[in-house]
Nucleic acid binder design. Structure first.
Lengths: 252, 252
DNA sequence: CGGCGCATTGAGGGCGGTCAATTGGTGTGG
DNA sequence: CCACACCAATTGACCGCCCTCAATGCGCCG
């Protein structure tokens, strides 16, 4: 929960009063197994979910059976804050690993919008960052090669996970299958596999044993045409403050 | 301005007090010519823009020169409400036709979040609908054929324009080039042209003289695997209430 | 009339898709 | 400890959707 609060008003700390309000708004925590549906598609819901532990995605399955992942969510992310105003979403949230999820009833969110304008803006902002990532993915899917897309995804995960302290040196655990990566980047499984091999051969990054290791951060970013601004992490990612070191906490 | 207000709390009417607040928050209106940059990329801004007349898009140009359009905006849309919390966006807003734009200083939006929680939620909601469209486009770009993508785009525009009264029978003006359509759907210009021809030959829809005419709404939706829910128009689009008729106003 | 922007058409090629088989790691039960 | 099942990763062969290059048509406007 704490790491979630750190990120919400990022890079500023969230006032204590608002922290408490948010913590109180979690009515319960729920556990899911890998593959479980956290939130079903096309079903009205009256709560939103924060990922406290584990990885999940939002996905849509077409009539042909093909799947498109529209977003990945890591610990600290709301996976369906968008449902607060929209109630029903056309895609479902699915656990990619075992997940611990905090449930926030929409009624509590509504109260927040009435008495906590600043916190409201921070929640709003977090959905706008989601949208910014969607737009970036549109650029990747529409105009970038398979190699660039995968490289971009690996860059994105690196920064997102770094903020919540889930990187170690230049590598991080990415507990998803190549099939998941394919369905996110609009590629076939076979081609994703070959592209991973290419990234490895070029000395850019390796994806193996569900772990990404970045060999050459500079060249990986170039290959991806990666510009981190769309993630709106400020320059406060630990990466930017002291490369390699992960000793100092970002915000208390 | 009025048609904008109708849509914001859609399908409910926006309370008069909030309507006035919004109207007052427009500090000025500005005119742009086709091709003008309405809002530059990577530049901090302190206002957001409502399209009062004309069509615009958000777009990103890569180093290779290729362009990806991430969104189209029609009259009544905020084209960069997302900039309210994020301040800087990596893509620019560009006028596709002559545009009349209402400028809303962020300071006014901030005041709204403090004293008008309901209106705040409606503005938040409109950005969430943007995000919902982005996710749908991700599905299109990632997993659908060129034919499906174009068909989907034509369906989407039909409903979005219908809500603001910009359709006539089963056709509407879409004042963009095939090149714009290509850059939105991640296709080459040549292939977009051929796919338009295919849509016409199949009797689904025609795009000519910057006008889309839908010949077979049912089959067009099938080809696109189009489900309108993601637009969150409720069932209040005039299309759904009385097909073909456009006499009764949706909301006063 | 010439220039310009957009639409259209043809030819050829490559990126990435599909089908299919194999390998390897892991967990389970005999 | 091995047999087996199962899943993910890997590799090969082939193919097609869509891209690129290039030329032509067409309407508009100065």
């Amino acid at each position: 929960m704490q790491r979630f609060l750190e990120r919400l008003a990022w890079p500023d700390p969230l006032p204590e009063e608002e922290q408490n309000r948010l913590i109180k708004s979690v009515s319960q925590t729920v556990l899911f197994n890998a593959g479980d549906e956290i939130v079903p598609a096309e079903t009205p819901i009256d709560f939103s979910s924060i990922i406290l532990d584990g990885f999940c995605c939002r996905q849509r399955v077409l009539k042909t059976g093909s799947r498109q992942i529209t977003a990945f969510h890591v610990p600290g992310d709301f996976c369906d804050l968008h449902a607060y105003m929209l109630k029903t979403l056309p895609d479902s949230a699915v656990a990619l690993t075992a997940c611990r999820v905090g449930i926030v009833p929409h009624e509590r969110l509504r109260e927040i919008t009435i008495v906590q304008p600043h916190l409201t803006r921070m929640l709003w902002k977090s959905t706008l960052i989601d949208a910014s990532v969607y737009r970036q993915w549109l650029v990747c899917l529409g105009r970038q090669s398979a190699l660039s897309r995968l490289a971009h995804l690996f860059c994105e995960f690196y920064l997102r996970l770094d903020v919540v302290g889930l990187t170690k040196e230049m590598s991080y655990s990415l507990p998803v299958t190549q099939s998941d990566l394919s369905d996110a980047m609009g590629l076939s499984l076979v081609h994703t596999n070959r592209t991973c091999a290419q990234l490895r051969q070029k000395g850019l990054a390796t994806f193996a044993q569900r772990t990404v290791t970045i060999h050459d951060w500079e060249r990986l970013q170039e290959a991806a045409e990666f510009e981190s601004e769309y993630l709106h992490l400020g320059n406060h990612s630990r990466r930017w403050r002291s490369a390699g070191s992960n000793s100092e906490p970002a915000i208390t």
